[in-house]
Computed example of a mutant assay.
Amino acid sequence: MSGIKFSGNRLRTCLLGEFERALELAGPVPRCIVDAGGYIGLVAILFAKRFPSARIICLEPSSDNFRVAARNCACFPNISVFHVALGGKRGTAVLRDRQTGEWGFTIAPVAAGEEYDELEMVGVISVRELMSEHNIESIDVLKLDVEGGEFEVLNDATDWLKVCKLLIVELHERIRPGVTAVYERATKGRIEVHADGEKRLSVLPVRGADY
Rank of each mutant, 00 (worst) to 15 (best):
Leu161Ala: 15
Asn155Phe: 08
Lys162Gly: 03
Arg176Tyr: 14
His134Ser: 15
Val163Asp: 02
Thr180Trp: 05
Gly148Thr: 00
Asp159Ala: 14
Asp145Cys: 01
His194Ile: 05
Leu130Gly: 13
Glu120Lys: 04
Glu173Met: 09
Lys143Ser: 06
Leu119Ala: 09
Met131Gln: 00
Leu167Met: 09
Gly149Gln: 07
Gly113Lys: 10
Val153Glu: 06
Ser138Asp: 06
Thr187Ser: 13
Asp140Leu: 08
Ile107Pro: 01
Ser132Met: 11
Val124Cys: 08
Ala108Val: 07
Met121Glu: 15
Arg185Lys: 11
Ile107Ser: 05
Arg174Leu: 11
Glu184His: 05
Ile191Gly: 05
Gly189His: 06
Gly123Glu: 07
Gly123Thr: 10
Gly189Ile: 07
Ala112Asn: 07
Asp145Ile: 02
Glu118Val: 07
Glu114Lys: 15
Ala112Val: 04
Ile191Tyr: 05
Val127Lys: 00
Glu152Cys: 04
Arg190Gln: 04
Gly178Phe: 00
Leu119Met: 06
Leu167Val: 07
Glu170Trp: 08
Ile168Asp: 10
Ala157Ile: 11
Val127Glu: 03
Val141Ile: 13
Glu170Ala: 02
Ser138Glu: 06
Phe151Glu: 14
Pro109Ala: 12
Ser138Met: 12
Asn155Asp: 08
Glu184Val: 06
Lys162Ile: 06
Asp156Ala: 03
Asp117His: 14
Val122Cys: 04
Leu130Pro: 09
Ala157Glu: 06
Glu152Met: 03
Ala157Asp: 10
Glu184Cys: 04
Pro109Gly: 13
Val110Trp: 01
Tyr183His: 15
Val122Ile: 00
Gly149Pro: 07
Val182Thr: 13
Leu166Cys: 03
Leu166Phe: 05
Ser132Glu: 05
Glu147Val: 00
Lys165Trp: 13
Val193Glu: 13
Leu144Glu: 00
Val124Ile: 12
Leu119Pro: 01
Ser126Ala: 08
Glu114Thr: 12
